[in-house]
Structures are given as C-alpha cells and as structure tokens.
Amino acid sequence: MEFVGKYIIRFVVLMLLQILVFNNIPAIGMISPYLYVAFILLLPVSMSPSLVLLMAFATGFIIDLSINSLGVHASAMTMMAVFRPKILDIMAPRIGYEANNEPLMSVFGFGWAARYTLACVAIHHIMLYFCFTFTVENISFMFVKVLINIILTVLIILITEKFVIKK
C-alpha cells in the first residue's frame, strides 16, 4: 500500500507541475518541456506492460484535457509505453533486472538513466509533434523544435531524478 501511495503522490505532483508550471512557459509554441512523462518512465520494471500502457493513455488523456488537445498526448504516451518494455529489454544489465527494480538513476547510474530517458522521450516527442501537425510539411523546422524540446525534457527529468526522486 505504501508502494502504491508513493506512485499516487508522484503522479499528482508531476501532473500539477506540468499543468500549472510547464504548460505556462511564456515562450509557448517553441519551448514546452513535458516533465509528466517521467511518471511512466519511472514505474517499476516488473510492472505489467498492459497496465503501463493503460496508465500512459490515462496520463496523456488528463494532460490533453488540461490543454484542450484531446487525443494528442494520449497517442504519444501510448506510443512511448509500447516501446518501453523493448527499451528496458535492450538496456537490461548483464545479470537482468531484480524484482521491484525501478528504472532510477540512483539504481543504474547517470549514463543508463540518460540513455533510457532520451530513448523514451524521443519517441514520445516525435509522436506528439506528428499528432499536433498531422503533416510532414515544414519538416526541418519541426525537427529543430522537437530536438530542442527533447533535450529540454530529458534535462529536466534527469535533474528531478537527481535531486527529488530518491530511492
């Protein structure tokens, strides 16, 4: 129960941060980091992929409700969640994951966390911008924008992990 409570608190805090702070950055349109994806990223490794998928969809849906973009974040989040087990598989340590392992920087180190976060956030953001535009026009401009936001989001997530979320 204590275990579930930790995630509920983390979920609420991340959502509030995203909705109240990061969605209201003045340079909106160009810079919009999405910290809330960290909630799905940091779920336990052994958690059922289908459950993660549903939670990812729900998380995205709530964000969509808050910024009136129904379906966009939900789609990006499910896309990210479907690749998450694969990424974890590829990045598994030589001895494999232990039960109740969380994909945290404090557990696997900074390099591992950076690569893992980057992979997941990249999938999420690319899908997100595709859902926002629905075209492949202005692809070079979109590429720059997506790249900036991926770096920004990854940095913020890593900083949060480093200083806030401890084991």
């Binding site: 969809f57 129904l70 379906g71 966009v72 789609s75 499910t78």
Partner: peptide
C-alpha cells in the same frame, strides 16, 4: 487517440 484527435 486518433478518433479523439480528429474529432476535437
């Protein structure tokens, strides 16, 4: 998601 996107 797709249905939501194209409808809203």
């Amino acid at each position: 998601s797709f249905i939501l996107i194209v409808n809203f």
